[in-house]
Computed example of a mutant assay.
Amino acid sequence: MTDAAARLEDERRRLLASITSRDADVAGIVAAREGSNVDDEHDPEGATIAFERSQADHAADSARRRLAAVESALRRVEDGTYGVCEVCGRPIGEGRLEALPATARCVRCAARGDR
């Protein structure tokens, strides 16, 4: 396994654990609200519960997006295109790959927002 693949697999494991934890947080918030007569609009604690759920949902969604990027990068490792910009076809710099192992774009294309 290459260094890049090992880093990506480590990140994949970390993200899966994070998603599991965030999903458990959301489930706990939902369970805490079940059976209660919480009215977020009028209950001073209700806004906190809604905010906490929103934050936990956002964190889980963000981790899922990062996981999708990592899994895409692992596929690029397998097919030999890892480290090649998906837009211009030039090599992605080693420093960029170290900082953002799942990136699919070189600095130039990422900065320009090329699709």
Rank of each mutant, 00 (worst) to 15 (best):
M1H: 14
D3M: 15
A4C: 08
A5L: 14
A5E: 11
A5G: 09
A6S: 13
R7M: 14
L8Q: 01
E9L: 13
E9F: 08
D10N: 15
D10F: 12
E11D: 13
E11I: 06
R12C: 06
R13C: 06
R13K: 13
L16I: 02
L16S: 03
L16D: 06
A17V: 07
A17E: 15
I19Y: 08
T20S: 15
S21L: 11
S21V: 07
R22N: 06
R22A: 00
A24C: 03
V26Y: 02
V26C: 07
A27N: 12
A27G: 13
A27R: 02
G28Y: 04
G28L: 05
V30K: 03
A31E: 12
A32W: 01
R33P: 01
E34Q: 10
G35I: 00
S36M: 06
N37K: 11
V38G: 00
D39T: 03
D40G: 11
D40E: 13
E41V: 12
E41G: 08
E41W: 10
H42V: 06
D43M: 01
D43P: 00
D43C: 00
G46D: 05
A47Q: 11
A47P: 08
A47K: 13
I49V: 12
I49F: 10
I49P: 04
A50C: 09
A50I: 06
F51N: 13
E52L: 09
E52T: 04
S54A: 15
S54M: 13
Q55Y: 09
Q55D: 11
Q55F: 07
A56P: 00
A56V: 00
H58I: 00
A60C: 04
A60E: 00
A60M: 02
D61V: 05
S62M: 09
A63C: 01
R64A: 07
R66V: 00
L67K: 02
L67Y: 01
V70S: 00
E71S: 02
S72A: 14
S72I: 07
S72L: 12
A73F: 01
L74K: 02
L74D: 03
R76V: 05
R76C: 02
V77D: 05
D79G: 14
D79R: 14
D79I: 15
D79W: 10
G80W: 06
G80M: 13
T81S: 15
T81L: 10
Y82W: 11
G83I: 00
C85T: 06
E86Y: 06
C88S: 10
C88V: 07
C88Y: 06
C88A: 10
P91G: 15
P91I: 08
I92V: 05
I92F: 02
G93P: 04
G93D: 07
G93F: 00
E94C: 10
R96V: 04
R96S: 04
R96P: 02
E98Y: 09
L100A: 07
L100N: 00
T103G: 01
A104K: 03
A104G: 09
R105V: 03
R105N: 07
V107R: 04
V107A: 08
V107I: 13
R108E: 15
R108H: 14
R108Y: 12
C109R: 07
C109E: 07
C109G: 10
C109V: 09
A110G: 08
A110D: 05
A110V: 07
A110W: 02
A111W: 11
A111Y: 13
A111D: 14
R112M: 15
R112I: 09
R112L: 14
G113W: 06
G113C: 08
G113A: 07
G113Y: 03
R115G: 12
R115K: 14
